[in-house]
Amino acid sequence: MKSAVLVFPGINRERDMARALRLLSGREPAMVWHADAALPSGTELVVIPGGFSYGDYLRCGAIAARAPIMDAVRAFAAKGGLVLAVCNGFQIACEAGLLPGVLMRNAQLRFICRDVYLRVERSDTPFTRGYNAGQVIRVPVAHGEGNYIADGETIARLEGEGRVIFRYASPDGMIDPDWNHNGAMNAIAGIINAQGNVLGMMPHPENHVEAAIGRTDGRGLFAGLVDHFNLAA
């Protein structure tokens, strides 16, 4: 799996992401600077990592979404290339028009940094084939603006087309306001685009891939992607 991790000023999770990709795919990802106009040739997966691009100025992800490299990412996605957008990456993907909706300030106004439980809604995507549908995984979140909102029509379309991939849930997989930490509509933690090749999610699967850290629930996402490309080859 040949992956490229985008780097913007103020991004700080790119090395965690690169570490997870190296560990699970056995290949060194390319680190791609925001001012570049092109992705490395042969790129199979683009990752937009987490952090605080441009200090979250204007709106989270707004300035990064207009960087030169994003034109290349849009063209890559339009041709079916896989894009994984995590945390600030999810905000950037929404601002760039790769995914619908917006990540607003958390309903309780607090920055949330803790492990959460996610219910995996589908296992038939390249990103979630390493999980079972309905499975609950525990991964960290670290964000102040993760409260997903979209207009009613967009939410209905996302739900109708099965494009909600992860929801905040209780440890036994129940959807409950008490476990919806940031107040996201329909407890949405992650969505996919209509073509099924761009996934955005607020939580950080890349931080739970090594037993030494405590948990390995995030491995399934990266191992699934590696499988996806091995089967395609």
Partner: peptide, 9 residues
């Protein structure tokens, strides 16, 4: 339209 406002919200 292009930057200052996110017209979704």
């Amino acid at each position: 339209e292009k930057l200052l406002a996110n017209t979704v919200i």
